[in-house]
């Protein structure tokens, strides 16, 4: 009975976290922050749901299969996220930094940031920063 209640709680937590990660991937501003939300869905939602289903299944082959899924995703999800972040950096996607947000706020432009990136001024600023960073790789900007 206690195991039943625990497994229901874990399954509900998994469902809630999968919705939270989907809302995060929809609402967050750029690719790197969206990756954070996706990582939460890959670890917490999958982990809670799999452990909840393992508690429902008991000591059978089903538990071993769920543990195998959990073990594989435990290694595959960080690998995918790392490769995607590297590919995005190599593909020239600049992360939105706090400085950008502060300058946008000072300019009085509170509209969507995706429109701001079309702005010629912020485009120039981003290009300049990219060149600076490439010249001094050890220096954090």
């Amino acid at each position: 009975m206690a195991i039943d209640i625990l497994s229901w709680i874990l399954i509900v937590i998994g469902g809630v976290f999968s919705i939270i990660s989907a809302v995060g991937i929809l609402r967050l501003p750029d690719i790197y922050t969206r990756m954070h939300a996706a990582g939460m869905g890959d670890t917490l939602a999958l982990g809670a749901l799999c452990v909840g289903m393992m508690l429902q299944a008991g000591w059978t082959i089903v538990t071993i299969k769920l543990a195998l899924i959990l073990l594989f995703m435990f290694f595959a999800s960080p690998t995918t996220t790392h490769a995607l972040a590297r590919a995005a950096i190599a593909g020239g996607v600049e992360p939105i930094l706090d400085e950008d947000r502060r300058e946008d706020r000072r300019l009085g432009d509170r509209s969507n940031r995706r429109e701001n990136s079309d702005n010629k001024e912020s485009e120039n600023r981003r290009n300049k920063r990219g060149i600076d960073r490439r010249h001094n790789p050890g220096e954090s900007s």
Partner: peptide, 13 residues
Amino acid sequence: YDRILAVNLFGTK
């Protein structure tokens, strides 16, 4: 990259 990330999360779901 956003699309790849979304499709990856869709596969997990």
